[in-house]
């Protein structure tokens, strides 16, 4: 945005083409080089400081049990933050993520009930849950994508609309009550199981994170998302199918959210119509705090995961040091604002 403005008004690039013009810009890039390092290290340093601070306040923080617990907690948020990051890269965001999680949760639980719950073949039941969950999520993502990309509605209104719709669907199909009777196989698959001693949630988050990192950095789709987010008009002029890719980005976002929803459903052991709660807000907060830029085109798996870790450690520490849940809401709000202020500063010093 700021780039476009500068060029349009012809102020800053007034020296375009000047032979010596390369010199000052080289200096500027040296500056941003320093900033990049600062930016990359700031959050890890903050994470360590945060852990250290809480460890001083309470010696339960740094136990291996609690660290594993934090990692497991963070895997859920990391998935949602990654989902959110995919659309934030394209200058959008998804306010319907939380309700999508709720909708998938009850949808999957109902599907399992429909297949006979605990009595039926475990694999069939799990397959039904996955199928139902992803079908609902893809429908929601498709709706968001079509409304944003084809109808040209701002992501805010589009996902605010689908957020309402998803809330309506989630509470209607569940009658507003938790759907009980999630079979053990399902919990085994998405919660209690472990691979190489790591809880399954962590394994899923790592695998998905790795795959997403590959997609974003090495595929035409990923590359195009960055270009669309950096300059959507230029992307369109260069023949990138912007609309189609935007739709895909929203579907990918919802699908990742659905995976997280299945994992959370396995954890609670029931389909919860309010499972998503504040997840939209939290996932945006995590992505932005981690360094994903709301201006589009900047961020990646690392920023989403770091942000998720930061928020998880913060809330884990606040829980253990018995800080009031309401105060935690205030802190979350403050962190969101802090995150965008930092984002702004980074853009300015670029």
């Amino acid at each position: 945005m700021s780039d476009a403005n500068l060029t349009a008004t012809g102020k800053a690039p007034g020296l375009e083409g000047k032979a010596g013009g390369e010199r000052p810009s080289a200096r500027a890039s040296g500056l941003s080089f320093g900033n990049t390092w600062l930016r990359k290290l700031a959050l890890p340093i903050a994470l360590v400081a945060l852990l250290g601070g809480f460890a001083l306040a309470d010696d339960r923080i740094l136990t291996s049990y609690n660290l594993l617990n934090i990692a497991q907690q963070a895997s859920y948020l990391a998935l949602f933050a990654m989902a959110q990051m995919v659309v934030i890269l394209t200058r959008g965001f998804d306010l319907s993520l939380g309700p999508t999680v709720s909708m998938v949760s009850v949808g999957a639980a109902l599907a399992m009930m429909g297949m006979g719950g605990g009595e039926a073949n475990g694999l069939v039941v799990v397959a039904a849950a996955i199928l139902a969950g992803f079908a609902l999520a893809v429908a929601c993502g498709l709706f968001n994508g079509v409304v944003v990309a084809l109808l040209g509605v701002s992501p805010l209104v589009a996902t605010l609309g689908s957020m309402n719709i998803a809330i309506g669907v989630a509470t209607t199909i569940s009658d507003g009550r938790p759907v009980q009777g999630v079979p053990a196989t399902f919990s085994q698959t998405f919660y209690t199981g472990s691979i190489l001693g790591l809880p399954i949630a962590i394994v899923i988050a790592i695998v998905v994170g790795g795959a997403l990192a590959f997609v974003l950095s090495r595929t035409v789709f990923g590359r195009s998302l960055y270009i669309i987010g950096t300059n959507p008009q230029a992307a369109a002029v260069a023949g990138i199918p912007v609309k189609r890719l935007l739709v895909l980005a929203y579907i990918l976002c919802s699908a990742l959210a659905a995976l997280g929803a299945l994992m959370m459903t396995a954890r609670t052991g029931s389909g919860e119509p309010n499972l998503g709660g504040t997840l939209s807000l939290q996932s945006i907060a995590a992505a932005v705090v981690g360094g994903t830029s709301l201006a589009g085109g900047r961020g990646g798996v690392a920023t989403a995961v770091l942000g998720a870790l930061f928020i998880t450690i913060l809330s884990n520490g606040m829980n253990l040091t018995r800080i009031d849940g309401y105060v935690q809401m205030i802190v979350l709000g403050a962190i969101v604002i802090l995150g965008v202020v930092l984002d702004r500063l980074r853009l300015d010093t670029r």
């Binding site: 780039d3 960055y226 950096t230 023949g239």
Partner: peptide, 19 residues
């Protein structure tokens, strides 16, 4: 070019191969 041509924060390589 700033508005419709180039993705300014992306490298030259990506901008050239973009189309």
């Amino acid at each position: 070019r700033g508005v419709e041509g180039l993705a300014l924060s992306r490298p030259i390589r990506e901008n050239v191969s973009m189309a």
